[in-house]
Structures are given as structure tokens and as C-alpha cells.
């Protein structure tokens, strides 16, 4: 057996130690050729049926709520259906007018505008998560607001609404103010939530942050922001009257067969069916029922009351 001198053993030990402690591990690198190139091509399938959700919330919420429904419709109808995301209410209205949206899911106020301007046809409406076929707006302020105790205290305050074309987030609460003798001129300021998307949530956040004294939102919005703010800091001052729920409508020149397939598929959805319930829960309603343009009379009446011009 070879006898290694003591000093040499020590030296070897030190070298080994340094090798173990001092040398980094080798990482495996994937070799790629950067010279082979391609051009970008994202050309759309022009035959797809476009589906748009009025951007009352952000695109992600819109996508999150409706992508299962889109998948369901694709599966049920065999059609190529694509969800598109207009950034604002106005863009939604414009895209409907441009024919870029075949199936529109919007509030009754926007629908009345679309029907008035482009002949949009309502064919179904949702049953709200509360089980109601109707929905309403809410007037909110901070719980600790020093001067706002009652609805009347909103006079002279700064108000923020969702959009000029929002039903729950503007039209319905304004009707409620009107019924209580409060006019737009009584407020110090009326502002609208900045776009695009997420407009309902932005109203709640603006009131929560104290940027505005009073906020106008549709019922259900607070649930959406429950994980973002402390809801105990928000007080609901009043609810508006009930109005028809959100409307599914189609552009007037959509192939009736396609419309029929889509309408039937939507109406077939049963909350008691577990598969459908998952889709409906995700979309934040419990069912879809048939409807038509005559159901929107109360909305049109409110618009008249408030003197809103549908052509502008």
C-alpha cells in the first residue's frame, strides 16, 4: 500500500475542499439557433361568431366570467365563437354598430341605445344571482363620512358613476335621486370611472379612497371587490328601483339559424345541472330566459324621465 506523506495528504484535502466549496455547479444550457427567423402572423378566423360582454368590469373579469359560457356555446352549437373585449361602453356600442359584435351581452340601457341606433334585437335575459330577473343600482359612500348620513346629504357632494351608459352604475341610481328630488345640478361634481374596463370596481375604489363622496354602482359590484377592500368601510345609502336584467341581443343581420342555435343553447342552461351551474356561477347569474324588446319599456320610461337623448 502506497503511503502518502502527511503534508501531501493535507494539501490534497485542501484542494478537494476548495473544489467542493469553490466551484459552481454546471447548468445545462439549451443550444438554439437564433438565425432562423419568422414573421408574426395573427390573422383572425373571419367566420367566427363574435361575443362581447359590455365592459362593466375589467377584461379579465369579463373573460373569467364568460369563457366557460363561450366554450359551452361552442360545444353546443358547433360554431366558432370568439369573445371580443371592447374597452369601453362606447366602444362596445360602436363595435356593435360596426358589425364587429354578433352577440352582445349588455345592460338594458345600452341595449335600448343599441336597439335605437342599430336595430339590435333582444332575445334573452339573465336571471340574476339573487334569483331576480331584474337588478338595481346602489348609492354608496364611506361608512365614516362625516356629513353624509342620509340620501339628502348627497347634495353638494362629489359623485362618481360607472359610465354615462351604465344602467346599474348610473341610470338607475340617478332615477332614484330624481325620484327623491335630487337633480344632477345638486351635486358638486359628477365624474365617470376611467376606462378601459373595470369601471364598476373603480367607482368603489374611488369612494373607498375618499376621492369621491358618493358612488353609483350596480348591485353585486361590492362582492366583486370584496377581496380588495374592507367592505365595512363602505355604506350603502340607497338602492334604486328594480329594472330588467342584462340582455342578450343580436345584430339584426345575424344568421337566424345561428341566432336560434345560440338562443336555444343559452335557454337550455339549467342551474340544477352541475355542469351548467358551474358555467352560470362563473358568469354570476343563475339562468337565461327568453325575452324581447317589449320588456324594456320601464327602462325607456326612465330615460325619458331623465331626459336622456339616445342619439347622442
Amino acid at each position: 500500500m502506497i503511503r502518502v506523506p502527511r503534508k501531501l495528504r493535507l494539501l490534497l484535502f485542501l484542494i478537494l475542499l476548495l473544489m467542493v466549496t469553490g466551484c459552481p455547479d454546471d447548468e445545462t444550457a439549451l443550444k438554439i439557433d437564433m438565425n432562423q427567423r419568422e414573421t408574426v402572423d395573427i390573422k383572425d378566423d373571419g367566420n367566427a361568431v363574435t361575443y362581447a360582454y359590455l365592459p362593466q368590469y375589467s377584461h379579465t373579469v369579463a373573460y373569467d366570467r364568460h369563457h366557460l359560457l363561450i366554450e359551452y356555446l361552442k360545444k353546443q352549437t358547433g360554431l366558432a365563437i370568439k369573445q371580443v373585449f371592447p374597452d369601453t361602453f362606447n366602444e362596445h356600442i360602436r363595435m356593435v354598430g360596426q358589425g364587429k359584435i354578433d352577440i352582445s351581452f349588455c345592460n338594458p340601457y345600452v341595449y335600448v341605445i343599441l336597439a335605437h341606433r342599430y336595430g339590435e334585437k333582444a332575445f334573452a335575459q339573465v336571471v340574476e344571482s339573487s334569483g331576480q330577473k331584474r337588478f338595481r343600482g346602489q348609492i354608496i359612500c364611506r361608512t365614516d363620512h362625516p356629513t353624509i348620513k342620509t340620501l339628502m346629504d348627497c347634495k353638494g357632494k362629489r359623485v362618481i358613476a360607472v359610465d354615462l351608459t351604465s344602467a346599474g352604475g348610473y341610470l338607475y341610481p340617478m332615477g332614484h335621486f330624481y325620484q327623491h328630488g335630487i337633480r344632477m345640478d345638486d351635486f358638486a361634481e359628477i365624474s365617470f370611472s376611467p376606462g378601459p374596463g373595470g369601471k364598476q370596481e373603480k367607482v368603489v375604489l374611488a369612494v373607498y379612497a375618499g376621492q369621491y363622496d358618493v358612488g353609483l354602482i350596480r348591485e353585486g359590484t361590492l362582492n366583486v371587490v370584496a377581496d380588495k377592500i374592507d367592505l365595512s368601510q363602505i355604506r350603502i345609502l340607497a338602492y334604486s328601483n328594480w329594472y330588467p336584467g342584462w340582455i342578450y341581443s343580436a345584430r339584426p343581420d345575424l344568421n337566424p339559424e345561428i341566432l336560434y342555435q345560440i338562443k336555444e343553447a343559452l335557454i337550455r342552461m339549467d342551474y340544477d345541472n352541475p355542469d351548467h351551474r358551474q358555467i352560470l356561477d362563473k358568469a354570476d347569474f343563475t339562468g337565461i330566459i327568453p325575452t324581447d324588446d317589449t320588456e324594456m319599456a320601464s327602462v325607456r320610461e326612465l330615460l325619458d324621465t331623465l331626459g336622456i337623448n339616445l342619439d347622442r
Binding site: I42, H59, Q83, F85, P196
Partner: peptide
Amino acid sequence: QEPILSTDL
């Protein structure tokens, strides 16, 4: 997320 959804290139 938003620009992908809206295809906002």
C-alpha cells in the same frame, strides 16, 4: 391579460 384579451397589440 387585458391587452391579450382585447388583442391590443
